[in-house]
């Protein structure tokens, strides 16, 4: 019974939101309902963040209890989480300590990961031909190299005409390709949404 009810509620909400989007001028009631449902969803999503953080804590504590690898890092994470969460609740998110936690910990750590990522991607590109030596891989690497040559700063300055020609050529091809991919992704998203709307897929545990 509960499963049928959740499915009916989800489908009805989806249809109301869709009608509110498409028929907002003809039926203003649907638009008001759409905004109301969206507001509720935003509040629920905010509460979900807290549930997600509790999940993060329980996973890390389980690691520590079972003496799994990385358990100590998990304890450190939970400790830092409790301290920053507590200070945020008491002093607000504009407190200098919380700003410092952001500027001195999160930003540098993410910047370091970005630097590692740059090296990782160069390594992956070098290994691409060992992994898949086919025509598309060669074209992919060639396009990447040409774009890098044209876009990167050179000690003797930009190469007249050549740089712009490469950028224009790769720009036209990549824009066309990107549009093709995005049309495909949009159609996939549309059909996935319709499956959920018709109750064929129930990601809310309804079946």
């Amino acid at each position: 019974m509960m499963r049928v009810l959740t499915a009916a509620l989800a489908i009805a909400s989806g249809i109301i939101v869709l009608l509110g989007y498409f028929l907002r001028q003809a039926f203003p009631l649907f638009e008001q309902l759409r905004l109301l449902l969206t507001d509720w969803a935003v509040v629920i999503a905010a509460a979900a963040v807290l549930v997600g953080i509790l999940n993060l804590v329980s996973v890390q504590m389980e690691k520590l209890r079972n003496r799994q690898p990385g358990g100590l890092y998990g304890a450190l994470l939970v400790f830092a989480l409790v301290i920053t969460f507590g200070l945020g609740l008491v002093f607000g998110t504009d407190h200098p300590f919380l700003r410092a936690a952001m500027d001195a910990v999160i930003v540098p750590v993410e910047a370091s990961l970005l630097a590692i990522l740059a090296v990782t991607l160069v390594y992956a590109s070098i290994r691409l031909l060992r992994r898949r030596a086919d025509l598309m891989s060669v074209i992919f690497l060639l396009a990447m190299l040409l774009f890098l040559i044209a876009a990167m700063p050179k000690p003797f300055g930009p190469i007249p005409l050549v740089d712009q020609l490469i950028l224009d050529l790769t720009g036209i091809l990549s824009t066309a390709g990107a549009r093709g991919l995005l049309i495909g992704v949009a159609l996939g998203t549309l059909l996935t949404g319709l499956r959920v709307l018709f109750g064929m897929d129930r990601p809310y545990g309804g079946n």
Partner: peptide
């Protein structure tokens, strides 16, 4: 995020997960 257009890929991932 399920509130954005990117929600489609998340829903596809959930269907596959099931």
């Amino acid at each position: 995020n399920l509130f954005t257009a990117r929600g489609g890929s998340a829903l596809a991932g959930l269907a596959m997960l099931r």
